[in-house]
Simulated assay, not measured.
Amino acid sequence: MTRPDPAQQTELEAAAFRRLVAHLRERTDVQNIDLMNLAGFCRNCLSNWIEDAARDKGLDLTRAEAREQVYGMPYDSWKALHQREATATQQSEFEQGAPHRHG
């Protein structure tokens, strides 16, 4: 099997990222705090990384625009439709894991 060249590798990585974002859009039952507690990053982190990458390329992309790319709608709309109040357990886990965050 042929290994991908750099351009193909970028295409593969972009396709995998799009699939991850689509999966997270479908799994609205999974809260950002759950993602943070389990993986150390969440949907907001992904949008921040998009914003950072745009800035590195000299592109104008606001945080709200980056979040809309990840959430598929304005962030406030997503929160109103899907975000639940964190439980005491979730909040405790979040606070205990805070030093290990990579978002």
Rank of each mutant, 00 (worst) to 15 (best):
M1V: 14
M1G: 15
M1Q: 07
T2W: 02
R3T: 14
P4R: 13
P4A: 08
P6V: 08
P6I: 04
P6M: 06
A7G: 06
Q9M: 12
Q9V: 12
T10K: 14
L12C: 04
L12E: 12
E13V: 12
A14E: 14
A16V: 14
F17R: 08
F17Q: 14
R18A: 11
R18C: 08
R18P: 01
R19D: 15
V21M: 01
H23L: 12
H23K: 12
H23G: 07
L24F: 07
L24Y: 02
R25F: 04
E26I: 03
R27K: 15
T28Q: 13
D29G: 15
N32T: 09
D34R: 03
L35S: 01
N37V: 04
G40R: 15
F41Y: 15
R43C: 15
N44H: 12
N44L: 11
S47F: 07
W49C: 07
W49Y: 10
E51R: 15
D52G: 08
D52F: 10
A53Y: 10
A54C: 10
R55P: 06
R55I: 12
D56E: 08
G58E: 06
L59I: 03
D60H: 09
D60F: 01
L61V: 11
L61P: 07
L61W: 03
L61T: 02
T62C: 04
A64P: 03
A66F: 03
A66S: 15
A66K: 09
R67F: 11
Y71Q: 02
G72W: 00
G72E: 07
D76C: 01
D76W: 01
S77N: 02
W78S: 01
K79V: 05
K79C: 06
R84Y: 02
A86P: 03
A86K: 08
A86L: 01
T87D: 02
A88L: 03
A88G: 00
Q90S: 07
Q91S: 12
S92A: 14
F94R: 13
E95G: 09
P99F: 06
P99A: 09
H100I: 11
R101I: 03
R101W: 13
H102E: 11
H102D: 09
G103N: 06
